[in-house]
Write a protein that binds this DNA or RNA. Structure first.
Length: 747
DNA sequence: GTATTATCTAAGTCT
DNA sequence: TAGATAATAC
């Protein structure tokens, strides 16, 4: 049983075995932070701690899931009882249990940033405030930062300094907006992301019995990425841990990159002050990267004044130097990156998954995307406009949300006239006014519309009655059927699916497919969660909505078996590692960002961000910058980033533009290479094609992993372009490329 | 009430 | 540049 300890080096072992009571592990990048955390939990369990009494807080759901799986492999299914997840998801879970104390229902909605903003927009408008002074984004982030520092409306009103700040920026009504916003959220039975932390604090603070209950439950608390906790999270951890003081945190001050979200690097620096007898461990050996990478990263971070001293080193080989490439513009940069990836792939037979392209801002992904497309390289973009923030997805999800919580006003406003049912702005305003008069929600008015004294014509009245009946019937359905059936019925009956079917433009088809994808997701969700339930209970739409509210793109990273190049912001890459890393856009005003230039603190955070980017790589790093970049609608000239000058030269190979004078030649070379690769690809595809060897014919019954069973009704095209049209039982007609179709012939 | 067109505005990182 | 919102015509 104790053999798991053999998987640890000396200092890792020490931090796992010798940590009793409050402990902090300061670990350099790639030094095995997650490993220590994982084995610490295994160690606790093997010493007899009940998994039920362990709380593990991580930064992403993915990290939590992976860790839990690893633990389960070692200690067995008992590990399922560990509470492990992100701060937000764990606290949401607690809040749902205790919601009634706080005046919420257990089905409360979680407003995402879009919901918050649209509510704020309405409030600002209703208060007749100047929308140029009260920019929604700024107001939202102001309120968010107040909440993250646990400053309630009352506290704000009594805080002279804060009010003065807003007075100076001529936004003295922030307090009023804040108050109205809270009231509206409460009325809608909704919490925003920040509320999940704020309300948990309130709960633990105002109800000592509840606090005690969770203190007794969570006898061991472990926190990952402690450097990125904000004040609210810090206090929750502190109060939960105060009884047993079995608090084990790991982090790296050099990787603190979330101060914009209220993360406070002092939490890690002050750990000793909070717990005077805390044990401190340091992990300094890097197992991930080559010497060149580790040393280059060190040469960057040493420029920061504000940090713990650490000596990160590695026993790995020296490896290649970091390659720095100058480009004429952003398109050339993208092309060069795509091309380098292509040549490495050809030379080393490496899969796409070995590559990641990291950038400072999401907007940079576009040119890269184009370049990768040209070379037929498969990629996946994380973040940006995520799947769940697409309009069609949000629309359908709004139906699900309203079924769970009819008072969710953001959801209601989204769907009350989608698809068009003749309930327009005028009617909505009348309803809204009536609702405000009587302190009710819009839904309260609609569900009783016959008895409300509102000036509506009979046709509108009928439309409202129909709408309310439909929602009520959906509600009933959701109570008797599982999430999948409910979702399918709602998507059909609401008319959303038909609305999208009508649109035959490529975008329209794409939207329709996204809906299918969503339904597939729900199907998987139901299947995965069924195992954990008793036979007669259902995986209902409520549980799906709860799960999805806090999920991010990154979380379904490994759900697909596909081989793709990862495109993401550096922030998103935290905690991940890849063989080859391409960091693009190393230009002044972009990285470091323009907005960080004013303060040393912000600039140091940008530098830490660069440090994070560099330390993602195991084997090879390519950095690039463009002298001209398309930004804000026009071409902008840029200077190479100051961070490039900070990189110690001995670890870099610099490829400036002036060196390769014969650009023409290199383009020809690239092109030839490209053609060659393309040829190779086609050959490969042909092999795959032949290998499959299935002969499809019209009328055959086939099975698809996602779409289920169907019948072939048409064949088209030749060779690798061969297309198969299938009519699926549940998903209707689809045309698939044979080589990618994954179809299986059944009898 | 709805569809189309014109105008405006923001452009940073995330749960 | 693109997405959101306002203005306009139907």
């Amino acid at each position: 049983m104790n053999e798991y300890l053999n998987n640890l080096n000396k200092s890792q072992l020490k931090s796992v075995v010798d940590s009793n009571g409050p402990s902090i592990v300061i670990a350099g990048a790639g030094a095995g932070k997650t490993r220590v955390l994982t084995y610490k939990i295994v160690h606790l369990i093997s010493k007899g701690v009940n998994p039920f009494n362990i709380l593990g807080l991580t930064f992403t759901n993915k990290a939590a899931r992976e860790m839990k799986n690893r633990i389960e492999k070692i200690v067995g299914p008992n590990a399922k009882n560990i509470w492990m997840g992100t701060f937000h998801s764990i606290f949401a879970k607690i809040l749902r249990y205790e919601s009634e104390l706080m005046g919420y229902s257990s089905n409360f909605s979680i407003y995402d940033t879009d919901d918050s903003k649209s509510l704020l927009r309405r409030i600002i408008k209703n208060l007749n405030l100047d929308i140029d002074l009260y920019k929604v984004n700024q107001v939202q982030s102001r309120i968010s930062s107040l909440k993250n520092n646990l400053i309630t409306v009352n506290a704000y009103n009594n805080n002279f300094d804060l009010k003065k700040q807003d007075l100076i920026s001529k936004r003295e009504k922030i307090g009023l907006i804040y108050e109205t916003y809270n009231k509206e959220c409460f009325k809608a039975d909704a919490m925003d992301f920040d509320d999940l932390l704020l309300k948990t604090n309130e709960l633990l603070h105002n109800y000592p019995k509840i606090l005690h209950k969770y203190q007794m439950k969570f006898q061991h608390i472990l926190v990952d990425e402690y450097q990125d906790t904000n004040h609210a999270q810090y206090l929750i951890i502190k109060s939960l841990a105060s009884l047993n003081e079995n608090l084990f945190v790991v982090g790296d001050d050099a990787q603190s990159i979330y101060s914009f979200r209220g993360a406070n690097i002092d939490n890690i620096l002050n750990f000793q002050k909070d717990y005077p007898d805390a044990s401190i461990f340091k992990l300094e050996q890097n197992y991930r990267s080559t010497k060149n990478i580790v040393n280059a990263a060190n040469s960057i971070i040493k420029n920061n004044k504000n940090q713990y001293f650490k000596n990160v080193w590695t026993d790995n080989e020296s490896g290649e130097k970091i390659f720095v490439k100058e480009n004429f513009n952003d398109n050339e940069e993208a092309f060069n990156v795509a091309n380098s990836i292509n040549s490495i792939k050809v030379q080393e037979f490496s899969p796409n998954l070995d590559f990641a392209i990291l950038y400072r801002t999401n907007a940079q992904s576009r040119s890269i995307e184009e370049a990768l497309n040209k070379l037929n390289l498969k990629y996946k973009i994380f973040g940006g406009l995520s799947f769940y923030s697409r309009k069609e997805i949000k629309d359908l999800m709004a139906y699900f949300k309203i079924v769970v919580n009819q008072n969710d006003e953001e959801a209601l406003r989204r769907i009350i006239n989608y698809p068009k049912r003749g309930i327009g702005l005028t009617t909505l305003n009348k309803l809204s006014i009536q609702a405000n008069k009587s302190q009710k929600t819009i839904w309260n008015i609609i569900e009783n519309i016959e008895h409300e004294k509102i000036n509506l014509n009979s046709s509108t009245l009928n439309k409202l009655i129909n709408f309310s009946d439909q929602i009520k019937s959906f509600k009933l359905i959701s109570q008797t059927k599982d999430a999948l059936e409910t979702a399918i019925i709602i998507s059909k009956e609401s008319g959303v699916l038909n609305e999208l079917k009508k649109d035959m433009t490529p975008e329209g088809i794409n939207r329709y497919e996204n809906i299918q994808e969503l339904i597939n997701g729900i199907r998987n969700f139901v299947i995965e969660n069924k195992e954990d339930l008793n036979d007669n209970s259902k995986v209902d739409i409520n549980s799906y909505i709860e799960e999805i509210a806090l999920i991010t793109d990154l979380d379904d990273f490994d759900d697909e078996e596909n081989d793709f190049i990862s495109l993401m912001t550096i922030h998103q890459s935290k905690g991940l590692e890849f063989e080859n890393i391409f960091i693009v856009g190393l230009e002044e005003n972009l990285f470091p960002s323009q907005m960080s230039m004013a303060s040393t603190l912000d600039l140091e955070e940008e530098r830490r961000l660069f440090y994070v980017a560099l330390t993602r790589a195991k084997k090879r790093i390519s950095i690039s910058y463009a002298l001209n970049r398309f930004r804000f609608g026009n071409m902008i000239h840029s200077e190479p980033s100051r961070f490039l000058k900070e990189l110690d030269e001995q670890f870099i190979e610099y490829n400036s533009r002036s060196v390769s004078n014969n650009n023409f030649n290199s383009v020809i070379k690239l092109k030839k290479k490209f053609e060659k690769n393309k040829l190779k690809k086609i050959v490969l595809e042909k092999i795959n094609y032949n290998f499959q060897g299935q002969q499809f014919e019209i009328g055959m019954k086939v099975k698809h992993p996602k779409f289920g069973i169907g019948v072939i009704f048409n064949l088209d095209g030749q060779g690798i372009n061969k297309k198969i049209s299938v009519k699926f039982k549940e998903f209707g007609e689809k045309t698939l490329l044979e080589q990618y179709s994954k179809l299986e012939i059944i009898n």
